[in-house]
């Protein structure tokens, strides 16, 4: 009987600890990115800038702009994902960003359909 009561009490205390752990986890839900991670991102962006400049020196005619734009989009993606913390935001933010960018791409496509085939 005594044993049973003490077991019940320790269970009760454990469940209380468990709740406390849950609460502390919730309050630490925010993600802290390390300085080192930002340095890695910065160096990556700089390398990509150097690549963009070198690529435009080589004459790829029509492909030059396309390559430059692709690299720029990739860089923009990195900036939004890490610097703008999109990686650690809720999916609502990501969905909104994708929607806005899709609308913009759609406008570009519609514009050039009109412009090139008129």
């Amino acid at each position: 009987m005594d044993l049973f009561v003490s077991a019940a009490i320790s269970d009760y205390i454990n469940s209380f600890n468990f709740i406390q752990i849950r609460i502390s986890m919730l309050s630490e839900a925010k993600h802290i990115t390390s300085y080192r991670a930002y340095m890695v991102v910065l160096i990556t962006l700089m390398i990509l800038t150097a690549v963009t400049i070198t690529v435009t020196w080589i004459d790829l005619s029509a492909l030059t702009v396309l390559t430059a734009l692709l690299i720029a989009s990739f860089k923009a993606g990195i900036v939004m994902k890490y610097f703008m913390h999109l990686k650690f935001e809720s999916s609502l933010f990501k969905i909104l960003v994708i929607m806005v960018l899709s609308i913009y791409v759609l406008v570009i496509i519609l514009l050039f359909f009109d412009y090139l085939f008129r």
Binding site: T64, V65, A68, A72, V79, M80, F83
Partner: peptide, 23 residues
Amino acid sequence: SGLYWHLVDLIWIFLFPLLYLIT
């Protein structure tokens, strides 16, 4: 404010190749 600053960076990422590197 950081988000706004990153936007300034973001726009420049596109302005630079399109204006300076198309020679």
